[in-house]
Design a protein around this nucleic acid. Structure first.
Length: 482
RNA sequence: GGGGUUAUGGUCUAGCUUGGUACGAUUCGCGCUUAGGGAGCGCGCGACCCCGGUUCAAAUCCGGGUAACCCCA
């Protein structure tokens, strides 16, 4: 993490990054530092500095979800960072889980607030004030914030942090259960769009009941596959039912004259989107950034020779003007050409234009496509059209690649032997599971680290539970999880 | 929760056994030369985690602290 680009690093870079499959945490740590996504040297454990290059990508993802939520009528808000203990205590099971994992704040002599570990205890007491009658519903808002948890497990940048974010939380309140269910469907559609936008295909599963908030109706959770075969929770869609409404006393007067508790949903995700992009698409040469979120889509490298530098630089500027619809940068620094090549590959810039004497003479443009690491030549006169075409193509190819990664990772297991084998191959096993806790525990006990992390959201043909042989239409996914 | 390892310029390191203020590389800055896959030379900036002890003298030995990393539950 705390390394900069030295020549020794450069020599070993392909080797180090080659560790992507062998030692994914090390690869991730190297690439985050070398490509200047974050700087982890900040002296508070598991809190780091977002560097401009990394934060730019993160904000492009945020901008996309902002627009998506706005289109769907969900309004952006902001709630305070400090949460009074009296708010937090209103939901005792939530409080039991978070009071030890909270950071506390207050005056020098007295700690009186908890720093937001999640949004609920800040938001829901206000919901109680805002909601009186049916006309106040539905309430549909979100905030994009950082949250704070004193994680005791091993922390990893962008995967498990003590300062978590930026992430959004959408919280909604509805008059009926059906409306809340529809809201989950909307949330799912919005999330799927974000995933497409960033070029990653996640796996959406239904969580076992006992892993949802106590009293909730249910939860869906996205998971993404990491190169070491572990799955990472990556965005949850919680149908809270009336569980929280009862704790926070959020009621409305219905048209039948009766007071009723509201039906709530909450969904959220954030920086883990970026960790999925980086880990799935990166390779031995560094990052591969999908054009949609790339801070620079096209880099132009002028290759000078002798006295012709002015002519070439002028041509580079001409290309920059012609490509003004894209995020273009000329790298005119005094580094050697090869060094620039390696650097912009490390940074994952989707397209590089190599511009030298040859290209000018031949009226051709040499472009290098980062995702497949191939050079091709295009006609200079078609440069705008061609660059646009290839950026779209790269974006599509990356999503396609991610879909294949997921497809190739899921294997059916009919018995515990097959399940063990798939687990050891670091793939995701798909099994019949009766949805009972006993069988769940037995499956998790089969191998160290084995986790049944959720069920297929679609029903399957009837089959036998892997453990108890009871008939079921439910299929579950099993893998090592973060 | 239990155990282990480490702490030296921005980064990576040598020195510690045997006490004498720190080797080297790289980054960064300046200059010149270079330029189609990690360029070269010269000059320059820059460090012993913190507190205490032993000693004429501590990066080095001793005690305590702090932090990070790794392994196991």
């Amino acid at each position: 993490m705390d390394k900069e680009l030295s020549s020794e690093d450069l020599e070993k870079l392909p080797e180090r990054l080659n560790a992507k499959k062998k030692d994914f945490p090390e690869w991730m740590s190297q690439v985050l530092a070398l490509a200047k996504i974050i700087d982890n040297r900040y002296a508070v454990k598991s809190m780091f500095v977002w560097m401009p290059y990394g934060y730019d990508m993160m904000l492009r993802i945020k901008k996309f979800w902002d627009e998506e939520f706005k289109k769907n009528g969900i309004k952006e808000t902001y709630f305070p960072l400090m949460v009074p203990v009296e708010y937090a205590e209103q939901n005792e099971s939530w409080w039991a889980g978070f009071k030890d994992e909270g950071f506390w704040a207050g005056t020098k002599n007295e700690q009186e607030f908890i720093i937001r570990p999640t949004g609920e205890p800040a938001m829901y007491p206000m919901f109680k004030l805002w909601i009186r009658g049916k006309s106040d519903l539905p309430l549909r808002i979100y905030e994009t914030v950082f949250s704070y948890r004193y994680e005791t497990k091993q922390t990893r940048p962008l995967i498990r942090d003590r300062e978590i974010g930026p992430w959004y939380e959408i919280h909604t309140c509805h008059a009926t259960k059906e409306e809340a269910e529809k809201e989950i469907e909307i949330a799912k559609q919005m999330n799927d769009k974000v995933w497409d936008f960033i070029g990653v295909k996640p796996l959406l599963v239904k969580k076992p009941k006992w892993e949802c908030f106590p009293g909730a109706e249910g939860a869906l959770e996205y998971y993404t596959l990491m190169p070491n075969g572990k799955v990472l929770e990556n965005g949850s869609l919680n149908n809270l039912g009336q569980a929280y409404a009862k704790k926070f006393n959020i009621k409305f007067l219905d048209s039948d004259g009766k007071e009723k508790y509201v039906w709530q949903t909450c969904t959220g995700n954030g920086e883990r989107y970026l960790s999925a992009v980086i880990s799935q698409h990166g390779d031995d040469f560094g990052l591969v950034i999908p054009p949609n979120i790339a801070p620079i889509e096209v880099v132009i490298i002028p290759i000078f020779r002798g006295k012709n530098s002015e002519k070439i630089l002028e041509k580079a500027k001409e290309y920059e003007r012609r490509l003004k619809d894209f995020r273009v940068e000329i790298d005119n620094s005094e580094k050697s050409v090869g060094s620039k090549f390696y650097e912009n590959e490390l940074k994952g810039i989707p397209i590089r234009i190599e511009l030298g004497e040859k290209e000018i003479e031949e009226k051709e443009v040499t472009i290098f496509l980062r995702n497949i690491r191939k050079r091709i030549k295009i006609k200079e006169k078609d440069i705008e059209k061609e660059i646009k075409k290839y950026l779209i193509k790269i974006q599509e190819e990356m999503l396609e690649k991610s879909k294949k990664i997921l497809e190739n990772s899921i294997r059916e297991a009919k018995n515990t032997e097959e399940l063990r084998k798939i687990f050891k191959e670091r793939k995701i096993a798909k099994i019949y599971w009766c949805e009972e806790g006993d069988c769940y525990d037995k499956i998790k006990a089969l191998e160290e680290g084995m986790d049944l992390f959720g069920s297929d959201i679609k029903e399957s043909k009837e089959g036998d539970c892997l453990i108890c042989k009871k008939k079921t239409k439910n299929k579950a996914f099993v893998a090592n999880s973060y």
